[in-house]
């Protein structure tokens, strides 16, 4: 009986977390940035949004991959919040005053590479 409890706890926790996957949306879009510092800013800032489960931003392609719970946050809000971190997305441009406060190496507009 005791064995059964241990095993069923294990199985149910997997099922629970698989069930959660059904509510998850996976998206990918462009977020402007330059360096590893940008990566840290973008990833940490986005992960703090409620409903966002997973973030990965690629320096070379400037592509962000996200997994989020569509019942808790709208995609449009994610775009908006990221732009408020100072990094423009496909949909929203970062407000100038926030952009200007970015660390030197993250000023993607003045660095001609992207």
């Amino acid at each position: 009986m005791k064995y059964l409890i241990i095993v069923s706890l294990f199985v149910s926790s997997i099922c629970f977390s698989q069930g959660n996957n059904l509510k998850s949306q996976k998206v990918s879009f462009n977020v402007k940035g330059v360096c590893e510092m940008c990566k840290d800013r973008i990833e940490n800032g986005t992960l703090k949004l409620k409903g966002v489960k997973y973030v990965k931003w690629d320096i070379i392609s400037n592509n962000i991959s996200l997994i989020y719970n569509s019942k808790k946050i709208k995609l449009d809000d994610i775009h908006k919040e990221i732009s408020l971190l100072g990094h423009s997305t496909d949909k929203y441009t970062a407000p100038t005053e926030i952009y200007n406060n970015l660390p030197d190496c993250c000023l993607y507009e003045t660095l001609s590479i992207h």
């Binding site: 360096c35 590893e36 510092m37 030197d104 190496c105």
Partner: peptide, 13 residues
């Protein structure tokens, strides 16, 4: 050129 410490403490261009 992005110049930054490996621990991401400081960076510059």
């Amino acid at each position: 050129v992005s110049v930054y410490w490996e621990d991401l403490s400081y960076g510059a261009t």
